[in-house]
Computed example of a mutant assay.
Amino acid sequence: MTSFLTRRLSRVALVGSAAVAAMMLSACGNGLASGGGEKSDDGPIVLGMLTPLSGSSSAIGPYMKNAAQLAVDEINAKGGVNGRKLELKVEDEACDAKSATAGANKLVTAGVKISVGGYCSGATLPTLPIFEKAGVPMLIPAANSNELVAQHKKNVFLINGTGAQQSDAALKFMKKVGATKVALMDDNTSYSKDIADTTAKLLTGSPALAGRESVTAGESDYGANVNAILKGQPDFIYWTGYYQEGGLIIRQLRQAGYKGNVMVADGSVDQKLVDIAGPEAAEGVFATMTQTPETIQGAEKWIADYKSKFGADPGPYSTQAYDAVRVAAEAVGKAGSTDGDAVIKALEGIDGFQLFSGPLKFTPEHTLSSGGFQILVVENGKIVLKDTLQ
């Protein structure tokens, strides 16, 4: 009896070993290098999104998550892509490199085929090599630091205008309102410092650079930074960081007696900026920003659909996140496959696909042909369109 069992178990072990070996061989090329754990071209096409669901920029996360889900649901209602439904998986980037790295690894393990997230540039940067190694194309709807472009990753595409395009728009408006001495303030993160650095290089004539100041994010008092920047007697101050610090700085600038123009970059465009600064201090503050739902002509039905589904108004970067999913679906449809290289080739070949910001055609650097930045302003406590810069 013992001899029989021994022979029987040995045969089972041999068969099991052969089966494992066969599975390993058949899995070659279908692991992380081919876009994660999904090993066949059936079942849902999994899209991954990293967005801030916690931390100081957590107000933005739901806008992006909800808008992406709205696009997924609309596409699925029409039959999906190549006969397959889309599925959205979301992880928290928290505007923190460590959190974003952990989230990216989770998404790769979950088998995502395309990434449609990325809000904070400093958190998005360390995820680039993770998705590159996994063969996952990235359609970044918000993060726009020039450092993202400088990595020259073939799998990275930006749906938002770049930091350089934002700086160009800022300078155009500064000249338009007659600014002569411009001071720049940043929070020393990749995104914020990038815009400040690029803008500083443009301020070589009139207007001229009147000073620069970098703050530490997360503090509750920026009085020392405010006093330092006002020593240069600027008539225009451009804050390139996020709304949490931006609101405090605006309030403290006004408390210090500064009466000149203040403008913020797109990372500060949220109603919370006004809430933190206070309506009186925020009144008249300008912002460089790509389109928001309220500034898009003809977006009323889309806004109504969003509000009906989620019970809230769409906010900044909701339309960009919505479009990132649509572009992903378009590329997979054109490629006829979720293979990373095939999708990248399809993305590079897109010409005229209609986004909220206009017809899409990527540059050789995988950025938008036109940044689409415009100027918003706080009026009566609300952020509204001021100037399209057209």
Rank of each mutant, 00 (worst) to 15 (best):
Y63W: 14
M23D: 07
L184Y: 07
L376N: 06
S54A: 13
D235L: 01
D351V: 02
Q69I: 09
A164I: 12
G278E: 07
N225S: 15
D42H: 14
I159F: 09
G340S: 12
T388N: 13
R7L: 13
E219N: 15
G278I: 09
A328H: 02
S40P: 00
H366G: 05
Q354K: 14
D197P: 07
N76Y: 06
G80E: 05
E245R: 01
F4H: 12
Q297D: 14
G371D: 08
I140V: 15
K172G: 11
T189A: 12
G284E: 09
A164G: 11
N146I: 06
D42C: 01
G298F: 12
W239Q: 09
S145N: 07
Q151I: 11
N82I: 07
L88D: 05
Y258K: 08
A304P: 03
Y238I: 08
M64R: 00
A134D: 13
A94F: 00
N380R: 13
I140W: 05
S206Q: 14
S167V: 09
L253D: 06
A33C: 11
G205P: 01
V12A: 15
T367D: 12
I45H: 02
F353R: 06
A217D: 08
Q166T: 11
V262L: 12
A142D: 04
A123K: 01
K176Y: 04
I344Y: 01
